[in-house]
Simulated assay, not measured.
Amino acid sequence: MNREEKSATIQEIAAQIEASEAIFAVDYRGITVSQAAELRTKLREADTSFRVVKNRLTKLAADKAGEERLADLLQGPTALAFVRGDTAQAAKAISTFTREHAVLTYKGGFMAETALDADSFKAIALLPTRDVLNARFAGVVASPLTGLVRGLGALIGGLALQLGQIADKGLVSGEAAPVAAAEVSAEPEGDKDEGEPDAERAAADPDAPGSEAEDAGGTDVETSDQASNEEE
């Protein structure tokens, strides 16, 4: 590898370091070419690249990227997993691959500002993947919305039923008014005279007993006047 190739490699590794959310370092001794290809395929699903590196060039790249912690992991044969996507899924893929093939030894790593030892790496590998968490979150959000939609549907259905019952009774169609008018017109007209005073009835009826008394009084006056004239 000439100087230009080394410079390009350093630049490329530095860019990968800067773009990574987490970096895992493993000892790759014992892994075959086909196994490495299998691991790369699984890690690609988590948006992670797996790269066997030269320690000296990688130290220069780490210095260039301002990541001094990586230098302590560059001892012996080293491969780096540059995680840009789902950290839990990447850790799970490496952990599962190591268990199935009995290769790869975890050396260390970091995620953002947090250093990850072997126990931390195992704990991350046990976490649900991002897709699983998103599905669970969507389920939690959808449950109240589903209940709200059902509640609104029941409310609207109940309101429609009540309006239908009101319409059947004629309270909103105007059919109840003629019935009330008919009841008023059916009342007997004679009831209106029940409240009139007795004096008015007597004045309106010439045959009433009071009228006969008045006529009798007038006749007596005329008879007495005639008797006085005859005596004179």
Score class of each variant (00 low, 15 high):
residue 88 A to C: 07
residue 13 I to W: 05
residue 223 T to P: 08
residue 4 E to Y: 11
residue 6 K to W: 01
residue 175 E to I: 04
residue 11 Q to S: 15
residue 228 S to N: 09
residue 66 G to R: 10
residue 15 A to V: 06
residue 108 G to I: 14
residue 89 Q to W: 02
residue 138 A to I: 10
residue 47 D to G: 00
residue 112 A to S: 08
residue 56 R to H: 06
residue 185 S to L: 12
residue 125 A to K: 07
residue 108 G to Q: 13
residue 84 R to L: 01
residue 180 A to C: 02
residue 133 L to G: 03
residue 55 N to W: 11
residue 107 K to T: 06
residue 113 E to K: 13
residue 1 M to Q: 10
residue 168 D to N: 14
residue 8 A to E: 04
residue 46 A to W: 02
residue 199 A to Q: 09
residue 129 T to Y: 02
residue 76 G to H: 06
residue 50 F to E: 00
residue 185 S to P: 00
residue 129 T to E: 08
residue 49 S to M: 06
residue 85 G to F: 03
residue 150 R to V: 07
residue 109 G to M: 06
residue 52 V to P: 02
residue 144 P to D: 04
residue 5 E to K: 13
residue 23 I to A: 05
residue 26 V to W: 10
residue 88 A to W: 05
residue 183 E to D: 04
residue 177 A to Q: 10
residue 173 S to R: 07
residue 13 I to R: 03
residue 228 S to P: 00
residue 28 Y to L: 05
residue 72 D to N: 04
residue 105 T to D: 14
residue 30 G to F: 09
residue 51 R to H: 11
residue 119 D to Y: 05
residue 15 A to F: 02
residue 67 E to S: 12
residue 171 L to Q: 01
residue 117 D to C: 11
residue 202 A to E: 08
residue 218 G to T: 15
residue 34 S to R: 12
residue 148 L to Q: 05
residue 120 S to W: 06
residue 76 G to Y: 05
residue 191 D to A: 14
residue 1 M to H: 07
residue 102 A to K: 12
residue 91 A to V: 09
residue 199 A to S: 13
residue 169 K to I: 05
residue 21 E to K: 15
residue 105 T to N: 08
residue 134 N to Y: 08
residue 214 E to C: 02
residue 182 A to G: 12
residue 129 T to G: 15
residue 14 A to C: 11
residue 139 G to M: 12
residue 94 I to Y: 02
residue 78 T to A: 13
residue 213 A to I: 13
residue 203 A to Q: 05
residue 133 L to D: 06
residue 140 V to P: 01
residue 179 V to G: 07
residue 195 G to P: 00
residue 36 A to L: 06
residue 17 I to Y: 07
residue 64 K to I: 00
residue 20 S to V: 04
residue 227 A to K: 12
residue 115 A to C: 03
residue 166 I to A: 06
residue 103 V to M: 07
residue 42 K to M: 11
residue 76 G to W: 13
residue 176 A to C: 01
residue 44 R to S: 01
residue 130 R to N: 03
residue 163 L to H: 01
residue 79 A to C: 09
residue 75 Q to M: 08
residue 209 P to M: 12
residue 206 P to K: 10
residue 166 I to N: 04
